[in-house]
Structures are given as structure tokens and as C-alpha cells.
């Protein structure tokens, strides 16, 4: 069984338990440090901030004492669409973003991107970010940059890569040791490892030995905007119905999912 899966195409993905997420933001910080994500002195305008991993705050908009809050971490969904036809990959005019059939990861080729931002327009999750400025690191900080991730220049788009450099390093090690596949713990994203609550689980969604394989089948699992057909590889779980409903848009007459969308906007 295990051998079979070593040769089957992988489909890396996440399952994020929203009941466990405290909104601490450790995943965001870990992601920025791991991936040399640039920042500016003034980050008040979030529409200009680059946050490969972003934690959204959702509320059920009920008056006290029924008020509930949910924090929703949002990395790139690495959408598969239908047959790898993800929203952003198919629109890139210069083939600067690609869907890997081998890993299911949507890559971004920084040296190929010429900054037309069509992919940003295509992504309903706002997972793609443009470098409006050249990265400027506080003095001395450049020494702490990760040597495994190339910093990006002004004028191009970047996004979460599921820490792909970690996959490459793990695969290199595996090849060196004469192995074809990876163990579950050999390749984990930085946000997964940083989450103090253990809310994020990462692994191969196709591999029954990986935790995500079972977690994604939970009755409380859902994905963001499934109705659009983006076929994302990030799953969420929550025992709270209103949270699960907030994952998509529903018409008022869709009985089981009656929600007022405006409630969830903050």
C-alpha cells in the first residue's frame, strides 16, 4: 500500500481546524520569516501588505452574549480547478505560474512574471500579492534572510508556495538516501510547524497514511468558495455551522444554508 503511494501523484494540501485557531498570527510571522516576505515601516494599509498567510476575523454578528468570533488563516488555496485549470494558472499570459501535476502545488516563477496582475484579478481569495515596492530590509536583517528562497523584486506578483523550497530540500535528501517518496514529517510548511494550537495539518491529500487524508473527510470539513469550482486544496473544519456557512455564498432560499452574508463582513 505504502509503495503504491510513493509512485502516485501527490496532492499536497492543508486541513485547518478553525475551532483550534486562536488568531495569534504565529503562522503569518513564521511564513514571512521563512519566505523572505518583504514589509514596510507602515503596514496600516492592508491592501498593500504582502501576507502569503493572512488570518481573517469572522463574526456571527450576533448581539452579546451570543457573539462568536472565528479566526480563519488563509494561505494560497493551490486550486486544482478541473484538471489543473486553476483560476490563476490558466490566465497568466507568460506562463509565469504553473500547476504541478506531481505535487498539486501552484508555483510562481518570479523571474518570469512581468507584473500584469491578471492572476490577482482571477483569484477570489486575494491570495496573490503585488510587489508595489522593492523590498527594503531593516539594517542587518538581510543577514537573516533565508538562503533557500529568492527575494522578489518590485513589479511582480508573489504568493504562498506551500514552502516549496522545503519540499525540494526534502526530495534532495530522499534522493541522496535512495528513496523515492517522503515521509509525512519530512515536508511540512512553516505555518504548520509554527501554529501553537496545532490547528494546521499539512500533507498529501492523496495518501491515506497522511493525517490530512482522514481530516478532509470529516463531516465538518469545508473549503472556501467551493461553488465556484476552484477546487482548492486547503480544507477547513469547524463544529460551528455558521463558520462552515461562511465558507461559501448561498442564496436566501437555499434552506439548509440560510445565512445573511452581510453579517459576516467586518
Amino acid at each position: 500500500m505504502k509503495k503504491e503511494h510513493e509512485h502516485k501523484a501527490k496532492k499536497y494540501g492543508m486541513v485547518i481546524d478553525l475551532d483550534k485557531c486562536t488568531g495569534c498570527g504565529a503562522c503569518m510571522v513564521a511564513c514571512m520569516a521563512e519566505n523572505n516576505v518583504p514589509f514596510r515601516a507602515d503596514e496600516t494599509d492592508k491592501l498593500l501588505s504582502i501576507t502569503w498567510m493572512r488570518v481573517y476575523k469572522l463574526t456571527n454578528a450576533m448581539p452579546f452574549p451570543k457573539t462568536e468570533i472565528c479566526y480563519l488563516p488563509r494561505p494560497c488555496m493551490h486550486c486544482e480547478g478541473s484538471h489543473g485549470h486553476s483560476p490563476c494558472v490558466s490566465v497568466c499570459p507568460a506562463t509565469a505560474t504553473d500547476y504541478s501535476e506531481a505535487t498539486g502545488i501552484v508555483s510562481q516563477i518570479y523571474t518570469r512574471c512581468f507584473g500584469c496582475r491578471y492572476c490577482m484579478a482571477a483569484c477570489p481569495y486575494h491570495a496573490r500579492y503585488f510587489n508595489w515596492w522593492d523590498p527594503v530590509w531593516p539594517e542587518g536583517m538581510e543577514k537573516y534572510l533565508s538562503p533557500n528562497v529568492s527575494p522578489r523584486m518590485r513589479g511582480i506578483v508573489e504568493k504562498c508556495s506551500f514552502c516549496f523550497h522545503r519540499y525540494q530540500l526534502a526530495m534532495e535528501k530522499a534522493h541522496y538516501e535512495g528513496r523515492h517518496g517522503l515521509e509525512e514529517d519530512e515536508y511540512q510548511t512553516s505555518c504548520t510547524q509554527a501554529c501553537p494550537a496545532g490547528a494546521i495539518t499539512f500533507g498529501d491529500l492523496n495518501n491515506p497514511h497522511h493525517a490530512v487524508y482522514k481530516l478532509k473527510k470529516s463531516e465538518n470539513a469545508f473549503r472556501l468558495l467551493e461553488r465556484l469550482g476552484t477546487n482548492p486544496k486547503v480544507y477547513y473544519t469547524s463544529s460551528r455551522k455558521w463558520v462552515r456557512q461562511a465558507g461559501d455564498n448561498y442564496l436566501r432560499d437555499e434552506k439548509d444554508n440560510v445565512i445573511d452574508k452581510s453579517k459576516f463582513r467586518n
Binding site: 499570459p93 507568460a94 510587489n131 513589479g155
Partner: peptide, 14 residues
């Protein structure tokens, strides 16, 4: 964003 790479749209056409 990168005007000097504008020709990529032809060269690396998707």
C-alpha cells in the same frame, strides 16, 4: 510591473 519584461508575453506565450 516590469516593463522591460513586456516581451515575455510573446516569447513565453501561454
Amino acid at each position: 510591473g516590469q516593463p522591460l519584461r513586456g516581451w515575455f508575453i510573446f516569447w513565453h506565450a501561454n
